[in-house]
Amino acid sequence: MTTYILKRLLSVIPVIFVIASASFFIMRGAPGGPFDKERNMTEEVRRSLEAKYHFDKPVWRQYLIDMGGLLRGDLGPSFQYEGRTVNEIIADGFGTSLLLGAMAMALAVVLGLSAGILAGARQNSWLDHLLMSCSMTGISIPNFVLGPLLVLLFSLTLHWLPVAGWRGARYMILPTIALALPYTAYIARLARGGMLEVIRTDYIRTARAKGLPERLVILRHALRPAVMPVVSYLGPASAHVLTGILVIESIFSIPGLGRYFVLSALNRDYTVVLGTVLIYSTLLVFFNLLVDVAYAILDPRVRYGTK
């Protein structure tokens, strides 16, 4: 197990390197530079700016400079936010985005699992139908439609919660719900499907036959195998949450990493784009690793490293 984790950790490095190189060359291959917008820039100023950010050098030198910085953990200066380094910008927005994403994931897992297991345990009851209709609706409402609708209802009409911003717990409620709902709904469906499959197996019938109360049959025997599909969905789900954060942060004006990414991509602020993409990829790769390890712990049939 430890060897497996170590191996996977090592395999992260080339992946991140490839992502960094790909983003670098795509951004540099594009026509138009980061200073195109400032029209009234004299030739002299432009040249000194370009020298400062190494734009006067050939592309391969720029690549080496950027990758060298990366190795030292230095992502370079921002082009648009004057006097700020990419490291500062990321440090600024990272915590906010991580908190938002973690809360949404937690909400989705807790709520989705409970709803799915409840629905699966009472298949074809009114509760099952109700929960599954809700979850189908939840999957189909895009979170960028849901977010504004929640604001319209709870902030602008009922005045219960703030419209936008990020200044305390009350500000976090709507963004978290808007971000979490589609994944909650999907997890509920997966958990229900897993439940239905497990409940038909012989060992559940045995557990029932020996007179175990239904509640214990579900909790002790059915639960663990039933949640396996949910565990394997957590990897893709985290990727979706990361992208979902982009719109949620822009709807609720949350000062997170996602907003920096979108603004920087539009402004061709290369270093910030590269930095944010790297952070996101690293997070994602590590999260996938975590999910695989969790899978191995939960499912004793999975054995790594022994072929």
């Binding site: 992946v15 790909a22 990727a239 992208t243 991509a265 993409v277 990829s281 996938n288």
Partner: peptide, 19 residues
């Protein structure tokens, strides 16, 4: 497998901005 673990939406956004 490797491509699966990448944040694709970000690359799509970069591609759309660039091209």
């Amino acid at each position: 497998d490797i491509l699966y673990g990448l944040p694709w939406m970000f690359l799509v956004i970069i591609l759309l901005v660039v091209f």
